[in-house]
Simulated scan of single mutants.
Amino acid sequence: MDMPLDAQSDLDDEVLLVRFANGDRDAARALTLRLTPRVLAQATRMLRNRAEAEDVTQEAMLRLWKAAPDWRQGEAKVSTWLYRVASNLCIDRLRRAPQVALDAVPEPEDDAESAEERLQGDARMAALDAALAELPDRQRQAVILRHIEGLSNPDIAEIMDIGVEAVESLTARGKRKLAELLKGRRAELGYTDG
């Protein structure tokens, strides 16, 4: 029996996935509405290309729906599994894609209210994107998942198929490198002390 979407919003991801596997289309809609924006954000940050990120997100969600009937409860969190699938799809695309000059990457979209705020936000995002692009792939992935997506170190370890200590090391080295790359640009990027 299908439940209204608002009644499903309190259900755990795994419960929704099992309900979808048992024919509950509203559960699929609720899970899609919950997970798609997060996966799309992750893929967009990794690929720095909205269209490619949308393709990856769609493919990751399709893989989730295909895995639903065989989902083994309690083995992995649905969101962690999905982040890992999306990460792997992004890495595959990055390996196949020709390298593009940073100037050829479009500026990220920003919903800031004023032109000045929008320009400042664009400058900050461009600086962060450029600095992230300088990191080795594994460091960039760990930093994005930890500090931009807000995932825990154990979840990141599962996604990247490494130990928690390796995640901590990757994120620490990545943060140090980002700080080094962005050092001296605080005033330029509109940050003031105090």
Rank of each mutant, 00 (worst) to 15 (best):
P4A: 08
D6F: 05
D6N: 09
D6Q: 10
D10G: 15
L11P: 01
R19V: 00
R19C: 03
N22R: 14
R25G: 03
A27S: 13
A28W: 07
R29E: 14
L31H: 06
T32V: 01
T36M: 10
P37N: 10
R38W: 04
A41N: 11
A41V: 02
T44H: 07
T44K: 07
R45N: 12
R48Y: 05
R48M: 12
D55M: 02
V56P: 05
Q58C: 02
A60M: 10
M61H: 12
L62E: 15
L64T: 13
W65H: 10
K66Y: 06
K66R: 15
A68W: 07
A68I: 07
W71Q: 11
W71T: 10
R72I: 08
R72K: 15
A76E: 12
K77C: 00
W81I: 08
Y83L: 02
A86G: 09
L89P: 08
I91M: 09
L94R: 13
R95L: 14
R95F: 03
L102Y: 06
P106D: 13
P106W: 09
D110S: 15
D110Y: 03
A112M: 09
A115D: 14
E117Y: 02
R118A: 13
L119T: 07
A123C: 03
A123R: 14
M125R: 13
M125H: 03
A126E: 06
A126Q: 12
A126I: 12
L128K: 00
A131C: 03
L135R: 05
I144D: 02
I144A: 03
L145S: 01
H147K: 00
I148H: 10
S152P: 01
N153P: 00
N153D: 12
N153E: 12
P154C: 04
V167W: 00
T171V: 15
G174H: 02
G174R: 02
K183T: 12
R185D: 08
G190C: 05
G190T: 08
G194N: 12
G194C: 07
